[in-house]
Design a binder for these strands. Structure first.
Length: 560
RNA sequence: GCGCCUGUAGCUCAGCCGGACAGAGCAGCGGCCUUCUAAGCCGCGGGCCGCAGGUUCGAAUCCUGCCAGGCGCGCCA
């Protein structure tokens, strides 16, 4: 059920036939039909669709584009019913106008589909995994993680709507050097709390949160590990702290409306031998050598600038080695598309990882990495530096408290991932009421208000099949219906490109057209048939608004 | 030095698989509430699309070179 998609396909086919017919008649000479587009023109006065076919043909045909367009029109059979007229404009575009009531057909179907309006079977049920956030479990979530959470969750939602079977995964970096540091820092705090002099490593974790964590640890076990074997002491501290930190992360994400299907432990890859196995397989493939007591991956064989260490001279595998094993594991789990949402500071890692996966004989094209640029925080005109070690950062929890979940999520998803994001805290606090998300939510609340009033007055909701759509003759009514009809195309486009910000654009445009309609047309009119038709339009708008907000992880309030 | 990202209205950003006069929000100015929520609607002002070349019938969009900002180039993760 996608009337726009259907009519576009018909038009494209008709255009191809027209070009072929003109060639056979000897009017247009060309060897191969070039790629052309059929798109919605920016200026709505130009019609509903426009094609540049005559323009792109000009290179081969060697005639003025407008002349070519004339020839095409001569042989073009317009799909009917649907397309009302075609005309040549500008340098040689062909503009098409649909019959005014064409888009109104979509309305009954929207009501029938309800929550699933906008969904498609594009993904054909293929398994896709989206891994995102994957924050270090040694602290709290910061603004960069928040952006990743909003973005990753929206992408996962959109893919699910487009017919993929989606798994959301959080990779827990619970191994390696940082955990060592974490352990030493915890140990120092533990000893300090028990009155023993101890120092946190220079590059350790100095945040106040560890003091509190250690205090809770002491409430449970007291000074039991004061004189214990240091490695046991650290192990107990780490396992306690990680559990607590992860629970906090999970809670913060849930408060942000983000849930994961799988929490995948890096340590489990070491424990299961997967890391060792991966290194051995790379070795067998001939891409590993030893130098200075370490094992190196021959990344230069894949065009990289330099080789990478897999196993350090102290015998411990690197994060890189574990990440290769992790991604191999993803392939083994059968995902057709493997999508990672990474901060731009990891971009150097992308091609290295892909090289290693190629060395293992895996189809690297199945791995898609969305790099998002980092978030810079401003306060009082100054940059706030974020650092786990110094404990100075604004957390996701604070963000949600300050600006609200809906506003924060909308804001993060509104920007394309490539854009650097300067987040002005003062602005976010003061302007939260002017956030564009309210514009969209307000449209939804207004609709609910109309429906409440209708119920109060004992007005029945229309039966879609019996509504006379012909009564919707006003331009705002038809434009709103057209925008509603576009929704499935927009979702599919966002899924293809992994660009959720297309949906915030769409949501804004839809809300705008509704507000105009609301101002111009009275829904609860006296005339029952017109009222029923407008109620149908309003109900379809509500469904579409709700569905698009849902995909973005933003609530659709009934009152504001 | 090398690599990736960004540079569009006062501010924050769309548009960038080339196309028809460059768009939106916020901020500014002026109108609109006796009937469904004014968190709204209508109108106005505001832009050498970082700079310079090139390709093209046509460039914000593609190519090259500069300039500016961010990030990366660890036996860190």
């Amino acid at each position: 059920m996608n009337i726009i998609h259907n009519v576009k396909e018909q038009l494209v086919a008709a255009l191809k036939r027209a070009a072929t017919a003109a060639r056979q008649a000897g009017i247009l000479e060309f060897t191969e039909l070039p790629d052309f587009v059929l798109e919605v023109p920016r200026e709505k006065a130009r019609g509903d669709f426009a094609t540049n076919l005559a323009l792109v043909l000009a290179a081969q045909v060697k005639k003025p584009p407008r002349r070519i367009a004339e020839a095409l029109l001569q042989y073009l059979e317009l799909p009917r019913p649907g397309v009302a007229e075609a005309e040549i404009a500008g340098p040689g575009f062909i503009n098409f106008k649909l019959e005014p009531r064409f888009f109104l057909q979509a309305l009954p179907a929207v009501l029938r589909l309800g929550e699933s309006y906008g969904c498609s079977n594009m993904g054909k049920g293929e398994k896709v995994q989206v891994e995102f956030v994957s924050a270090n479990p040694t602290g709290l979530l910061h603004m960069g993680n928040a952006r990743g959470a909003a973005l990753g969750d929206a992408i996962a939602n959109i893919l699910a709507a487009a017919g993929y079977e989606v798994t959301r995964e959080f990779y827990i970096n619970d191994a390696g050097n940082q955990i060592e540091n974490f352990a030493l820092s915890l140990e120092a705090r533990y000893l300090q709390a028990l009155g023993v002099e101890a120092e946190i490593p220079a590059d350790g974790y100095h945040g106040q949160d560890l003091v509190e964590t250690v205090n809770r640890f002491i409430e449970q076990v007291g000074d039991k590990y004061l004189n214990a074997d240091p490695s046991l002491r650290r192990e107990m501290l780490v396992s306690f702290a990680l559990e607590e930190k992860l629970a906090g992360i999970r809670q913060a994400l849930e408060d942000f409306g983000v849930y994961f299907d799988v929490w995948f432990s890096e340590q489990s890859l070491h424990d299961s031998g997967a890391v060792a196995q991966t290194i051995a397989d790379l070795q067998r493939a001939g891409y590993v050598y030893e130098k200075d007591g370490a094992l190196w991956f021959k990344a230069t064989a894949f065009g990289e600038g330099k080789d990478e260490v897999l196993v350090r001279s102290n015998g411990l595998p690197t994060y890189f080695a574990a990440d290769i094993a992790y991604h191999r594991n993803k392939f083994e789990r059968g995902f057709k598309r493997i999508i990672n949402i990474w901060g731009a500071d990891h971009h150097g890692h992308v091609s290295r990882l892909k090289s290693a996966l190629a060395a293992l004989g895996l189809e690297v094209d199945r791995l898609e990495i969305v790099l998002m640029q980092l978030v810079r925080l401003f306060q009082g005109g100054e940059i706030l530096r974020m650092s786990k070690r110094t404990g100075q950062y604004v957390t996701l929890q604070e963000l949600v408290e300050e600006v609200g979940r809906d506003a924060a999520r909308y804001f993060f998803v509104m920007l394309k991932p490539d854009s650097h994001l300067d987040f002005d805290l003062d602005l976010a606090r003061s302007q939260s009421a002017e956030n564009p998300v309210y514009y969209v939510q307000y449209a939804h609340a207004r609709i609910c208000s109309i429906l409440r009033l209708a119920a109060d007055r004992g007005i029945d909701l229309p039966e879609p099949a019996t509504v006379n759509l012909e009564l919707l003759r006003e331009p705002p009514e038809q434009e709103l219906a057209k925008k509603i009809a576009e929704f499935p195309e927009v979702v599919a486009g966002a899924a293809r490109s992994l660009e959720p910000h297309r949906l915030t654009r769409y949501a804004h445009d839809l809300a705008e057209l509704f507000h105009v309609f609301y101002t111009e047309c009275r829904v609860l009119a006296d005339e029952p048939d017109l009222r029923a038709a407008r109620l149908l339009l309003v109900l379809a708008t509500r469904i579409t608004l709700r569905n698009v907000l849902n995909l973005l992880g933003v609530t659709a309030p009934e009152r504001m």
